[in-house]
């Protein structure tokens, strides 16, 4: 490419800048982090900014291969949830028993038993306050699921290790259990993909994730407190987990920002108008924000694309991806390639998946533009990898995504690669196995 064209359509990046943060760097909170009162600081679950709250989790940090394998499990769960189906957990009324996979009944022939499970947890955490007086809890934030839950004393069956003190309902003056006859109890089914149970008169939820992690406990309500301005949401419905097991990374539970009536977004609709925004920290050693309400972004140049809603996967945020470009060249991809299975955005998925034909086109164009660099072995699901160990700077084609409403985003260099180490730098996209996924 000519110099001017190169500047427009290629990133020229120092290889060292692609490397992920390490603990040695410590935590450097982003100066752009939103400081508004209705804003929560977003931290990576395993990064140095989490060390003050999740120190005990360091030894359980996953490897890169484990991160990618867990990501595949999450995406498998999303694929199954988006497909039309009818499944139910036959009973979660006994909270002393885990909702094991073999208890998920199939009603649609040929579907895998895991199709009733919801997606695995994401990588980013925020701290909220719960109860009166409020107790601070670090929860995984997730736009791809709906149900908010935290571990609760007395942990009748099991609680995994978390850094924050476990929430104790008996110490909150505003805590209330929800009865089985409440309409909110029936809403649990769509929020958790599992039919709620009943213990005495109390509604019992059960939620199982794609990696077999789960939480079972009481549906409850209490006061939720958000941000430095201590915005309060009275009567916030959540799960008070008495039996919790899985890879939640030392967090106290999960906050669901999906589209279901029980999600935080829906429950806070009156206060924040069904608008929220986030920025994921650009390095694990930095911080981002999760902000409720309008005006939460630090950037003035927001490009919008319509949100789509479909009958399948009603909890998810579907968007209208129409095309891809590499190095300024639009790829030849039929528009129906993207509409066949649909496209959704999810804060908890690490690697963007593309339909097979779209991924093939992206891979071919990217390989062509990167042909001067030696290839490297595949890393789990990532099959387009390069050895950049002999370079101090590299020229990388910009990747653009075109959305409905004439919106386009061009990914920064950090959004193009997943870097295991400098000798194995991989294109951070993967192909779906089926065109209808």
């Amino acid at each position: 490419p000519q110099p001017l064209e190169q500047e427009h359509h290629f990133h020229i990046v120092e290889v060292s800048s692609l490397l992920p943060a390490t603990d040695v760097e410590g935590c450097n909170p982003s100066p752009k982090g939103n400081k508004k009162g209705n804003s929560l600081e977003v931290r990576h679950k395993h990064g140095p900014c989490s060390s003050s709250t999740l120190e005990s989790d360091k030894e359980s940090r996953p490897s890169h291969v484990e991160i990618l394998e867990n990501d595949e499990k999450r995406v498998d769960s999303i694929r199954e949830r988006v497909k039309p189906k009818s499944v139910e957990v036959d009973s979660v009324t006994d909270h002393k028993k885990a909702p094991k996979k073999d208890r998920v009944k199939q009603k649609a022939v040929g579907l895998p038993v895991k199709s009733g499970s919801t997606i695995g947890s994401g990588n980013f955490i925020v701290t909220i306050g719960l109860g009166t007086p409020k107790k601070d809890l670090s929860l995984i934030f997730d736009t791809g699921s709906d149900f908010t839950w935290t571990q609760c004393e007395p942990c009748k069956r099991s609680c995994y290790k978390q850094k924050d003190p476990v929430f104790n309902p008996s110490e909150s003056s505003t805590y209330t259990n929800i009865t089985c006859t409440s309409t909110l109890c029936s809403e649990v089914r769509s929020a958790t993909s599992a039919k709620p149970g009943c213990a005495g008169s109390t509604c019992v939820y059960g939620i199982q994730y794609g990696d077999s992690s789960f939480s079972v406990g009481f549906l409850a309500k209490d006061t939720l407190t958000l941000g430095s301005s201590y915005d309060t949401i009275p009567n916030f419905y959540f799960g008070c987990g008495e039996n919790n097991q899985g890879l939640f990374g030392g967090s106290a539970g999960l906050i669901g920002l999906g589209r279901n009536q029980l999600s935080v977004m829906s429950q806070c609709a009156t206060k924040y108008g069904q608008v929220f925004s986030y920025c994921l920290p650009s390095k694990a050693s930095s911080t981002g924000h999760l902000t409720f309400g309008k005006g939460g972004t630090s950037s003035k140049s927001i490009t919008y694309t319509p949100l789509l809603s479909g009958s399948a996967g009603a909890s998810f945020y579907f968007i209208d991806l129409q095309g891809l470009s590499v190095g300024g060249q639009k790829l030849s991809i039929q528009p129906t390639v993207f509409t066949q299975g649909g496209v959704l955005i999810d804060s908890g998925t690490v690697i963007t998946r593309l339909p097979p034909d779209a991924y093939s086109a992206l891979q071919a164009a990217f390989n062509k533009a990167m042909s001067k660099y030696p290839k490297a072995p595949a890393l789990s699901i990532l099959d387009t990898c390069f050895d950049l160990s002999k370079y101090t700077t590299v020229t990388v084609p910009k990747i653009g995504l075109q959305f409905g409403g004439k919106a386009e985003i061009v990914l920064p260099a950090a959004g193009i690669f997943y870097v295991k180490d400098i000798s194995q730098v991989c294109l951070a996209f993967a192909g779906n196995g089926d065109a209808s996924d």
């Binding site: 990588n123 929220f276 920025c279 920290p281 694990a284 630090s298 968007i319 955005i345 804060s347 951070a428």
Partner: peptide, 30 residues
């Protein structure tokens, strides 16, 4: 050990305007 997160969304502000039925991206978010 360095951990990477959800790389495509890094450095963007992502705005979910559910009431307005639109989703926004803003560069240089954090």
């Amino acid at each position: 050990v360095g951990i990477l997160g959800n790389v495509q969304q890094l450095t963007f502000d992502v705005v979910y305007d559910v009431a307005g039925s639109k989703l926004g991206f803003g560069p240089g978010g954090c």
